[in-house]
Design a protein around this nucleic acid. Structure first.
Lengths: 172, 172
DNA sequence: CTAAATCTCTTAGTGACTAAGATATATGTC
DNA sequence: GACATATATCTTAGTCACTAAGAGATTTAG
């Protein structure tokens, strides 16, 4: 029992630590947007473009959870700033692909240097094997959060009175 | 050289994986705010109140990076929703402490259940020792991100022409 | 060839945000 | 103790990104 108790405490501490660091990560992003002089959502879209490459406007709406109308605004601003280009799909002319302009986007990349340096320092203290564990966790964590997001969204479509009444383990 | 190369690749993969999962974490938060019917910043403040306990309005502004005026709005909305209470400090009557109303805040806590369940499942696959490694990393990562945020902010105060010209290791 | 579906953009209206300053209280100096 | 300065929150006016609804353009299905 003292075994499980220790683990419970550990899990709780872990949850708090992850929330703290993830909250700080959000703040870092806000600061980058601020320094770069672009809106938060604009930066988020740049991030998606970096991770996914050339994507359609609709895909951006899907991933960010914004309406297509809002995305039009995002792209307008990013295009005006010279950070991305609209490219009509020749196969299906309804679609608009968004592509980053590499040279301009590098200016934004600069603002991630402090973060990269900090992370390099942190990672430096870990062995290859430990890093592999962290990688495994990051990937599994991603899948978990993705699934949780879907579960929560489906809750949105369920009328409140017939929701499966989530049980709280404890006061969050 | 092949050793270092493997590590470089590992670090790169790790960075991408962490960005992905942290981006998805942001989306989870947005979805919670949506389902709960409150603004994003309002939820962020609830989170801070959970992590730090009873704090002043000014502290909320400091931590979120919002102006005090914006925080007034946040608190107004949260108070109207019955989620927090304003409590004037009797020692220093200029200050206003914000305290969560536990019963009402639990309704928000519900929306974190899918996330908790997902994380429980993920964590379940790790030994106590591995979890301790993750905890160590989360704590060090937090400190790193915090420091990086400060470094970036100080960059904001430096006029662009005399910035120490950050060198990019590679296109982000 | 027409109807329905899909993708992006447009428009009008809303709400959270900032900047600047007002208000209230506290602290330091003489 | 009175006055100036500092600190903490709130108010106001104006701005900007967002949503909802629907229009326009193109593709797909019958």
């Amino acid at each position: 029992m003292s075994r499980t108790k220790a683990r419970t405490a550990l899990l709780q501490e872990l949850e708090a630590a992850m929330r703290r660091s993830s909250a700080q990560g959000v703040l870092y992003g806000q600061t980058v947007a601020n320094v770069a002089g672009i809106a938060n959502s604009d930066l988020e879209c740049m991030d998606i473009l970096y991770l996914e490459g050339r994507v359609t406007a609709g895909r951006l709406a899907e991933v960010t959870g914004l309406t297509t109308g809002a995305i039009t605004g995002v792209i307008d601003r990013l295009e005006k700033a010279g950070l991305v280009r609209r490219e009509r799909d020749e196969k299906d002319r309804r679609k608009v692909f968004i592509a980053v302009v590499p040279e301009a986007a590098m200016k934004i990349g600069q603002f991630y240097v402090p973060m990269q340096q900090a992370m390099e320092k942190v990672f430096g203290a870990y062995s290859d094997e430990e890093l592999r564990l962290l990688l495994r966790f990051a990937n599994e964590g991603y899948k978990g959060v993705l699934a949780a997001t879907e579960a929560l969204k489906s809750l949105l479509d369920t009328p409140p009175e017939k929701r499966p009444d989530l049980k709280l383990k404890k006061l969050r």
